[in-house]
């Protein structure tokens, strides 16, 4: 098995429950580079895979604080210092009238970070992935449930991993290779 080529086992299940149990088995066996592929997010799968809580909120909070601070600085500088406008006898720099814009900027910065932070954590867009070489994988966005175990996992072993996956009663198991690195290097 070459180190360069990412190979993976792909096990297919008919139900969400079977997929969750398989994920629990892999987690308990100490696998790290495995994943579940389901047409919709399955309840309890995060715990079954032993995933920690998503860190996304820790990106969004500072972004929101940045939005409100930058907005404050902008309005203070523009209306309070650089071009003071006295309207309706109100002070040039007046905090109550800043609230709507500060609020909108907080939301804008947070929302942009929530979306692009999610893309960053998920490393998307990523149009090339060996898993797409499986013909059966198309139904992961339809009605089938999959578990993939990548060869980059230190515990990955062609026989043992297969045995472990077979014990979870999948309807199908296949070994998927990265076709694009292909032929010359290794044909196992």
């Amino acid at each position: 098995m070459s180190d360069k080529t990412l190979t993976l086992y792909l096990a297919e299940y008919e139900s969400a429950g079977a997929c969750v149990h398989a994920a629990e088995k892999l987690r308990d066996a100490g696998y790290a580079a495995f994943d579940a592929h389901t047409p919709f997010p399955v309840h309890g799968m995060d715990q079954a895979m032993g995933l920690p809580d998503s860190r996304l909120g820790w990106l969004v909070l500072p972004a929101g604080i940045t939005g409100v601070s930058l907005g404050f600085l902008m309005i203070w500088w523009m209306n309070g210092v650089d071009y003071p406008l006295i309207i309706g006898g109100k002070p040039a720099f007046s905090i109550p009238s800043m609230v709507p814009i500060l609020f909108e900027l907080t939301i804008l910065f947070s929302a942009l970070t929530a979306v692009f932070g999610m893309f960053g954590l998920n490393q998307l867009p990523r149009h090339h992935h060996p898993i797409f070489n499986s013909d059966r994988f198309a139904s992961a966005t339809d009605d089938k449930f999959f578990i993939s175990v990548e060869s980059s996992d230190p515990k990955f072993n062609l026989e043992k991993t297969k045995k472990l996956l077979e014990a979870t009663h999948p309807t199908n198991i296949e070994l998927v290779a990265d076709k694009d690195d292909e032929v010359s290097e290794d044909a196992p």
């Binding site: 997010p41 799968m45 998503s54 909120g57 929302a111 979306v115 999610m118 998307l124 797409f132 992961a140």
Partner: peptide, 27 residues
């Protein structure tokens, strides 16, 4: 974007969705 229905992705995806919902409500 190369979405592969991965649960590792769903996890952040759902959190992003929840955050967006929480942000859009007061918005």
């Amino acid at each position: 974007l190369g979405w592969r229905s991965s649960n590792r992705h769903w996890q952040h995806y759902e959190r992003a969705y929840l955050l967006l919902a929480g942000l859009s409500t007061p918005l």
